[in-house]
Design a binder for these strands. Structure first.
Lengths: 209, 209
DNA sequence: TGTACATCAGTGAACGCGCGTTCACTGATGTAC
DNA sequence: TGTACATCAGTGAACGCGCGTTCACTGATGTAC
């Protein structure tokens, strides 16, 4: 046993396990995050993970957090790429990009998308109590920021701002689920993309002043 | 062995297995539909089901169809209960009831709701090709009927009718998923119901002429 | 600088679980004559 | 009306699978003196 190739102490196992688990979630979804398989791929015995995670659920929770963060990043990137025009146009364009980024992520990374919404009970759960910091609920906060901007520039009235977050989220989330797992999963991409635009149209029109 | 209590030939096993499986799906979701447990509850040996279903997937598909039909029934009942007023008001009230029925079913019967959308690949999948009969996609057809009525009475223009089905479906489906499995699953009922009304408001406003 | 020793981070074997599915079989039913 | 026989609808044992988790263990590390 060469200490170069297979040191007894891995030295960096925890992050490697998380990365490996994320990769597994990517290709096979949350159910594919199997402790023994993670260990196998990390080249480590099947119970080494218990030094770093109390159990499978703890590892999966971490994977879920990463997936949620990936989704947030996808949204933020697309929002940042919206060109500057007049305030109102730009604010609505940002809202649409937020939605497109969400759906696009779901389609491009179905395994991670599903894993992002697979949290142990009580973790990563929102109260809709809008008052305080809502914890690390990234994508939801990003959406709320975009909606606040719409109010700021006068494109949406404060009354219509109430509950707009859930309305937008529901629409793009439902579209994603129908298209990724649901009865619309075999709709061809061009039809599917056109359908998404209509969804965004309806939401925008429903919110606009 | 008394032939009264335990006849060798059950005589009615197939429907009993389906009923039992539906009950299991109701309480524990699609993953709870376990062949051995279904057989146990039906009081029959664990492989008797193979006389009636080629495998577990075949039984589950039947359960899924039943769940889908239950969802449709819930929608139809609520639509039928909308009181007669002027055409336009009634047509929109029906649309809202359709959405409420959908969400209410998801909340009241999370196991069945989930099972309804757990179909083997290729079964119960829509093309969005609106031209022909779409197969037994009950809830989707019901929604389309309600939307057509809105066009008929002039509440929605034909242009806005295009894609309105997917927009409505996405919104209520997403809301249901967020609330039943997702990050909104611990939102208290009163807040949740208020949020749904806003979702319906936004959709209605987005479609209305 | 060297050494005893606690602690950390791995290993390998084993447990217990429950599943879907298949096989050879048997008890019950119904039909042809 | 009776009977041979094919067929149908069950049974019980077994296979093979892979999992999460635990246990007693060992190799490596780092710290106190």
């Amino acid at each position: 046993v060469s200490s170069k190739t297979q040191p007894y102490h891995h030295g960096n196992l925890r992050p490697v396990l998380v990365d490996t688990a994320v990769e597994l979630a990517r290709s096979t979804g949350p159910d594919g995050v199997v402790l023994r398989e993670v260990a196998r791929r990390a080249g480590v015995s099947h119970n080494a993970a218990y030094r770093h995670f109390s159990d499978r659920a703890a590892l999966l929770a971490e994977v879920s957090d990463r997936a949620y963060a990936d989704l947030e990043r996808a949204m933020v990137e697309r929002i940042a790429a919206v060109p500057a025009t007049d305030e109102r146009t730009r604010a609505f364009a940002r809202l649409r990009e937020t939605g497109r980024a969400y759906v696009e992520f779901a389609i491009r990374e179905p395994g991670l998308f599903t894993t992002a919404f697979t949290k142990p009970d009580g973790a990563g759960v929102h109260t809709l109590d809008h008052s305080g910091s809502d914890g690390p609920n990234g994508p939801y906060l990003v959406l709320n920021q975009v909606l606040d901007d719409l109010v700021t520039c006068g494109a949406v009235t404060p009354e219509r701002r109430v509950g707009a977050d859930v309305a937008c989220w529901s629409a793009v989330h439902g579209f994603s689920d129908l298209v990724v797992h649901g009865p619309l999963r075999e709709v061809p991409p061009d039809l599917r993309d056109a359908a998404l635009e209509v969804v965004l149209d309806v939401i925008q029109r429903g919110l606009a002043d």
